[in-house]
């Protein structure tokens, strides 16, 4: 009986393997695993190289491969507020809180986003700003707009786009050969710090054939990291240090420019 069970499990495992063995797999490498922010940092690029691996069993398909390289920055919780006129003055009124949304997002594709696949596929893999999932939380106030308010979503995306933190780059993935591709992800100077997830998806005829996820860490280094750590872990010392620095600067200036 036990032998039979084992045989069934084995058979199942082999069956499960067959489609995987027949499909394409992705091999991906990023130009760097860490991005260091030093005092002269003014933005940088990460290059992603990928290769579509096929074995003999892979059915050859007529249509072209589509690649989507997506970058998700560390999650952040952001309050989006809308100003309204009250007593003649523009004041922040209603707000929506987006919880654990990517602080940075970039979608790089071979063609346009629509060429990747139908909306269901795009939504499933969050390809493109339109299909990005933005979980919300209400403040509990009855004045707040209904969840999923399109105005707030549009406002949030517009501000992120304007800050250069959300981007869509159609055509930014280029094929070097029929199976080898490259994409250059531009990171702006105001890039957030933390772990970035790079998700590479291989699509054909609107179907995902393979997905690959890797990580890149963006961190401050040296003096910048030291100052940041000091400000957050030893805030009292940091504050006192700043005051001493200010007093010394003032005192020093008083000596240099002494006129009597």
């Amino acid at each position: 009986m036990r032998a039979l069970q084992a045989a069934i499990v084995l058979a199942g495992a082999i069956l499960a393997c067959i489609p995987a063995a027949r499909a394409e797999t992705l091999v991906v490498a990023t130009s760097t695993g860490t991005v260091n922010i030093a005092s002269n940092f003014s933005g940088t690029d990460i290059t992603v190289f990928g290769s579509i691996e096929r074995d003999r069993a892979t059915v050859s398909r007529a249509s072209e491969y589509q690649i989507a390289v997506q970058v998700f920055g560390p999650g952040e919780t952001v309050v989006t507020r809308r100003k309204q006129r009250g007593f003649g003055v523009w004041v922040n009124r209603d707000s929506r809180t987006y919880v654990d949304v990517p602080s940075f997002y970039a979608a790089l594709t071979t063609g346009t986003i629509d060429q990747i696949g139908p909306p269901e596929t795009l939504r499933r893999f969050q390809v493109g700003l339109e299909h990005l999932i933005l979980p919300e939380r209400s403040t509990g106030s009855p004045d707040d707009p209904a969840p999923g308010d399109p105005d707030f979503r549009a406002g949030f995306l517009r501000l992120k786009l304007h800050a250069g933190l959300y981007r869509e780059l159609p055509g930014a993935v280029t094929f070097l050969s029929p199976t080898l591709f490259r994409a250059t992800i531009p990171l702006p100077a105001n890039v957030p710090v933390g772990q970035f997830r790079i998700q590479v998806g291989l699509f054909q005829e609107g179907v995902s054939l393979a997905q690959h996820t890797s990580a890149v860490v963006v961190s401050k280094t040296g003096f910048e990291q030291f100052m940041f750590d000091l400000a957050f872990t030893r805030p009292l010392l940091y504050g006192l240090g700043t005051v001493v620095l200010a007093l010394l600067t003032g005192w020093f200036a008083g000596i240099i420019f002494r006129r009597d």
Binding site: P235, Y238, G239, A246
Partner: peptide, 21 residues
């Protein structure tokens, strides 16, 4: 300055030094 640094962590000493000089 000390209180802002302590409770809001919003004092940028590098920015401050350039402005001071």
């Amino acid at each position: 300055t000390v209180l802002q640094a302590y409770s809001n962590q919003s004092v940028d000493a590098v920015l401050a030094l350039i402005l001071m000089v």
